[in-house]
Design a protein around this nucleic acid. Structure first.
Lengths: 215, 215
DNA sequence: GTCTATAATTAGATAGAC
DNA sequence: GTCTATCTAATTATAGAC
């Protein structure tokens, strides 16, 4: 038995474990987004990942640990989509410019359109107080809330945008940007195709106009 | 035994049944909004209504029938809050006027702020296709969607508002109006009090400005 | 109409063979 | 690491006394 043979078998085993873990994460995202934490069953998640239910307790500590890993997974995808255009200058100081904020709005609409599962999970959890909500707010929501409201406040002080309170702006912007994609199943029943490029681009331009006003 | 005695007992019994039924409806609204259809248990609903779990199957055909009754109950409350200001003229012809639309936006924001459970249930159901979603869309969403998009299209043709597609407008307006109240538990963790009159009124004015633009 | 008791199903998690 | 089999607890719904 050569050295490479001795290493190859564990390496293959580890590769298979990694792919099982990733398949469980992707399946968990879909199931939690569609049915909520309580409504999603670990059996359904395992079946979607083409594996067996006890694998969840092997690869993750519990159903809740799987949920947290799935949420982290989704937010890292969001950051990848937003990374280059966030209203963020050197030293985390928000950049106050209409152009940068407009680019952020367009990028945000495109991102939430491609990650509807993230806002579905957010909305399902933010609806009632729970340990999961506290976890997601402290770990993910609060820094992003601070960044966006800070950028808006700085921009507003320049007098070049409507004088809207930054917390009102935050919920209006996030809600206006995300509902069509969160409620995509409903939209399709109403004859709307929110995933189409035409809808997403028109939506982004509409939000820029609505939020930044004329000029 | 007098006639009034003979009638009084059944009448009292019926009155108690009605109050049990109503308590179950109100409790169901809270539980379904907080935990979704699958996550809400009939035991929790009965406990919140200060009665016993089998009462649900006595007063309603099933958990799903209770859910439908709760949704009807909520939409009738919404109609009561919106009744006088909907953008609706004689013969159901939408009235196209900036002033009427502005009043509708303000009333809509106040209504969704007072009925957060309605949009929570909508968002939880609209997330994945299901018989419940089809039921709610045909019975409640579609006529309201047609009314609002029709009113916007008529208004847009007068050239007095931004040229935004009516389906984009619909989801942007409903999303912007409802998210702060749907996610009230999250908002409070972020230091925002979305239920306060100050927030609701500032929110209504902000949406009028954002949607109708200047003038 | 309302209650207690319980049937039938399904959930998340674990044991142990391979 | 992955599988089958199973445990314990929780779910919706029903039976039957009062």
């Amino acid at each position: 038995m050569t050295t490479s043979d001795a290493l190859a078998a564990p390496r293959r085993r580890q590769a298979r474990a990694d792919s099982t873990r990733l398949a469980l994460l992707d399946a968990a995202v879909q199931e939690f987004a569609a049915h909520g934490f309580d409504g999603a069953s670990t059996r359904a998640i395992a079946a979607r990942a083409a594996t067996h239910q006890p694998q969840i307790n092997y690869h993750f500590e519990s159903k809740e640990a799987l949920w947290r890993a799935a949420v982290d997974h989704l937010f890292s995808k969001l950051d990848a989509l937003l990374g280059e255009v966030m209203p963020q200058g050197p030293d985390d100081r928000p950049v106050a410019s209409r152009e940068v904020f407009a680019a952020t709005i367009r990028a945000f609409v495109r991102a939430v359109a491609r990650l509807p599962e993230l806002n579905r999970i957010m909305v399902q959890e933010a609806t009632a107080d729970s340990p999961r909500l506290a976890w997601i707010v402290e770990r993910h929501t609060r820094p992003r809330f601070a960044l966006l409201t800070g950028a808006w406040r700085t921009l507003r002080e320049t007098g070049s945008v409507p004088g809207i309170d930054e917390t009102v702006l935050y919920y209006s912007m996030v809600g206006a940007a995300s509902l069509a994609y969160v409620n995509a199943a409903e939209a399709r029943l109403l004859g709307v195709d929110p995933i189409s490029d035409a809808f997403v681009e028109a939506h982004g331009e509409a939000l820029v106009t609505m939020i930044l006003g004329p000029d």
